[in-house]
Amino acid sequence: MMTPAQELENKRLMGKLLVITVAMLGFGFAMVPMYKQICDALGITQTRVVGAGNTQVDASRDVTVELLASNAGLPWRFEALERSVKLHPGELVTVRYRVQNNLGRPVTAHAVMNTAPSVAARYVEKQECFCFSNQTLAAGETREMPVVFRVSSNAPRDMDVISLSYTFFEVKASGA
């Protein structure tokens, strides 16, 4: 049979093994924050996507788009935040316009786009534009509005400058 000394030694070893067990239980829970920290530190949180760049961008040439703004009989202050933007055909860009209603009453207006040369209009592909809907501004209100667009990579190669112009017309209240 086992001697008391032997039993004591067994209990000591059991104690050590229980420490490992409890430590590993803690380790299981510690893995949750550890994964996040280690992956962030090593920058390996994402699968590297190979060759998924936008193949529609024609990086071989640049197009300069000049941004113009005007009003038709409205005392609005309307301007583009940049004078022009240089881009590759196919590349999606965002530009911003700012408009201020200087009139002492709320005004509803609609912007109409124009391009020069006018044939360029079919190559300017807009995803988001303030010209898609009426804009109603309270008296003295200022608003910044984005235009998200690209110049199609089908645009002719000699079309290296496009003037993009917006003009606001007041929308008169109709009977409807």
Binding site: I20, M24, L25, F27, G28, M31
Partner: peptide, 14 residues
């Protein structure tokens, strides 16, 4: 076993 069964216990506890 004593290294990984506690980890499983932790996972199912979560």
């Amino acid at each position: 076993l004593i290294a990984v069964m506690p980890v499983l216990a932790g996972a199912v506890t979560m």
